[in-house]
Design a protein around this nucleic acid. Structure first.
Length: 461
RNA sequence: GGAGAGGUGACCGAGCGGCUGAAGGUGCUCGCCUGCUAAGCGAGUGAGGGGGCAACUCCUCCGAGGGUUCGAAUCCCUCCCUCUCCGCCA
C-alpha cells in the first residue's frame, strides 16, 4: 500500500504572498497545443503566447511553408490514389489472363511524376519539422511574462536565515579544512568545476541521497529507477534538450550518446511510444543519477566550489498524468521537494519563475532555492516543472481514457528532489560550529553510523 | 565480437507479392442473458494525415531507412533492437 500524496503537506500558515494554484488547461482549446495543426488554426494567439517568454518568436515562415506543403500534399495524394486504382485493375486483368501492358505503361509515367512531388514534399516537411521542434513550450497563462527574474513570485519562505557561517568561512574553506572535499585533486583528474568528495564528505553526500530516496520511495510511493547515465539523440530530443541546447551537453565522440544532464531525460523516454491506461495514472518515478552539464559560459566568481559544477548528484521525481490533474500534481511535487529542505533544517524559499526563465520544455516552473549564508544568496536546489504535452508529443506518450475513446497525450512533470551539491554547500555553511567543526543534520545521522559532530581534527562523535 | 532465430494493432499471435489495415484470441465499449459474482451470447473497437457541413472519402503506417515491382507486411540491401548458443569481461 502506498503512502498518500498529501502526507507531507505543510502548514498553510507559513505561506508568503501565495498566488492561487494554477488551473488546468482546457483540452478542447486547440491553442494549448503546440503542433502544426494548432499553429495553422491559431497562429496569432500562439505567437502572442510564445512571445511572453521569447519576444522574437515569429511563426510567419512556418505558416507559409505549411500552406505550400498542404497544396503539394493534395496533388501528391491525388496521384497516389490514381496509381493505386490502376494497380488494382492490373491485378484483376492479370488474374483474368488479360493483357495489362498499356495500364502498366500508364503507371510508370505516373510514378515519375509522383517521385518529383514526393521529394519536394519531404523537403518541405523536413524544414517545417526543424522549425517546430525548436519552438519552446507555451507558458501557462498564470506565468508572469518577460525575462526579469526579479518579477518571480515568491510562494513560500521557511526556516531561519543566517548571515554567515559560524566561523565566517565559506563552504569550500570549511570542507577543505575538514577533509570533506578535495577540489585541487578534482581538477587534476578532470579540470576545474568538478568536485571530489572524500571521507566524511563523501559519506554525507551519500547519506543525503539515501535520505531523499527513502523519503520519496518509502513515504511517498515512487518507484525507484536507476537508468543509464547516457542517452542517444532521439532521447535528448524527446525531452527538449536537443536540438537547441546541444552545446550544453557532453557528447561521446564515437557514439550517438550524450551524458545525461538530468534524470528527466531517461525518465521521459521511459514510456516513449506507449499508450498508457488512464487507471494507472499518475505514474510516479524517482531516479538517482549524476548529472553532467557543460555550463558553457556560465561560471562567475561566486560560483566556485559546489555552487556550479559540471557533474552533480541528483534525485529526481517524475510523473506521467492526465491534463486535468497535472497542475494539482505540480503542487504536490513542489511540496515533496520542499520537504527535503525542510527536514534538513535549511532556510529556503520557493518561487514561481517568470516566462523568460522557463526551460524550453516547461509551461510552468517552481524553483526551490536554498540560502547559502556566506553569500547571503539563494541558490536553486530544485526546479519543478509541468511540461504539459510538450515532451509527451515529442515522445508519443499517450493514454487511453477510462471508458475508451481516442488516445490523448499525457502531461509530464519533473522535479529535482533534490540536487545535492548546493545542498551540501548550504549544510556546511549552516551547520558549521564555532569551534571549527560541523554538526550533522539529524535526519542524516541514521545513515552515518549515528555520528552527530565532525570535529576540527576530523574525528567524529 | 561470432553463429542462429525473430521484431505485425492496447496486448498475444497468424499471414510470407494483388481479394490483408491486416485471420484468430485477449483486453476494452455497448447490448442481451443470468439470485450476486463468475461464465455465456451478439455487435463494435488501430494510429497519423488530407478533403467534405455531414454521411463519407482519399493517402500513409506491419522495428528504421533504402531498393526491386504496375503493385510489398510479404522479395533484396543496410542499420537498430530482442532472444538462444559461443567467446570476452566488471
Amino acid at each position: 500500500m502506498r503512502a498518500s500524496d498529501v502526507e507531507i503537506e505543510s502548514d498553510p500558515s507559513t505561506h508568503v504572498a501565495c498566488p492561487p494554484p494554477p488551473l488546468p488547461r482546457n483540452q478542447a482549446d486547440q491553442a494549448d497545443m503546440l503542433d502544426i495543426k494548432a499553429i495553422r488554426a491559431n497562429s496569432k494567439e500562439i505567437e502572442a503566447r510564445l512571445r511572453r517568454r521569447a519576444p522574437d518568436i515569429d511563426l510567419s515562415e512556418i505558416e507559409t511553408l505549411d500552406r505550400d506543403r498542404l497544396g503539394l500534399l493534395q496533388s501528391v495524394e491525388r496521384l497516389k490514389a490514381r496509381r493505386n486504382e490502376i494497380s488494382k485493375e492490373v491485378g484483376k486483368r492479370k488474374k483474368a489472363g488479360e493483357d495489362a501492358d498499356s495500364l502498366i505503361a500508364d503507371t510508370r509515367a505516373l510514378g515519375e511524376e509522383l517521385a518529383g512531388g514526393q521529394d519536394r514534399l519531404v523537403e518541405l516537411e523536413k524544414r517545417i519539422d526543424e522549425i517546430v521542434i525548436a519552438l519552446p513550450n507555451l507558458p501557462h497563462p498564470d506565468v508572469i511574462p518577460g525575462g526579469d527574474p526579479s518579477q518571480a513570485q515568491t510562494i513560500r519562505e521557511e526556516g531561519d536565515r543566517l548571515t554567515k557561517s559560524a566561523t565566517g568561512e565559506n563552504h569550500v574553506q570549511i570542507a577543505t579544512r575538514l577533509g570533506l572535499l578535495d577540489l585541487a585533486r578534482a581538477s587534476r583528474l578532470a579540470g576545474s568545476h568538478f568536485a571530489l568528495h572524500r571521507g566524511w564528505g563523501a559519506r554525507i553526500e551519500w547519506s543525503l541521497l539515501r535520505f531523499m530516496i527513502d523519503l520519496h520511495v518509502g513515504e511517498s510511493g515512487y518507484e525507484l529507477i536507476l537508468p543509464p547515465f547516457v542517452a542517444n539523440t532521439e532521447t535528448l530530443t524527446a525531452s527538449g534538450q536537443l536540438p537547441k541546447f546541444a552545446d550544453q551537453v557532453y557528447r561521446c565522440a564515437d557514439d550517438d550518446l550524450y551524458l545525461i544532464p538530468t534524470a528527466e531525460v531517461p525518465l521521459t523516454a521511459f514510456h516513449r511510444s506507449e499508450i498508457l491506461d488512464e487507471a494507472s495514472l499518475p505514474l510516479r518515478y524517482c531516479a538517482y543519477t549524476p548529472c553532467f552539464r557543460r555550463e558553457a559560459g556560465a561560471h562567475g566568481a561566486s560560483e566556485r566550489g559546489l555552487i556550479r559544477t559540471h557533474q552533480f548528484n541528483k534525485v529526481e521525481i517524475y510523473r506521467f498524468t492526465t491534463p486535468e490533474s497535472s497542475y494539482e500534481q505540480l503542487e504536490i511535487l513542489v511540496r515533496q521537494a520542499e520537504e527535503v529542505v525542510r527536514r534538513l533544517g535549511l532556510h529556503f524559499r520557493t518561487v514561481r519563475l517568470v516566462a523568460g526563465d522557463l526551460a524550453q520544455q516547461a509551461a510552468m516552473t517552481y524553483d526551490v532555492e536554498v540560502y547559502i549564508p556566506g553569500q547571503e544568496r539563494y541558490y536553486e536546489v530544485s526546479s519543478i516543472s509541468n511540461c504539459e504535452e510538450y515532451q509527451a508529443r515529442r515522445s508519443r506518450i499517450r493514454y487511453r481514457p477510462i471508458g475508451g475513446g481516442k488516445a490523448r497525450y499525457v502531461h509530464t512533470l519533473n522535479g529535482s528532489a533534490l540536487a545535492t551539491s548546493r545542498l551540501l554547500a548550504a549544510i556546511i555553511e549552516t551547520y558549521a560550529r564555532a569551534d571549527g567543526g560541523l554538526d550533522i543534520p539529524e535526519v542524516l545521522r541514521p545513515h552515518l553510523a549515528e555520528a552527530s559532530v565532525i570535529h576540527p581534527d576530523g574525528s567524529t562523535s
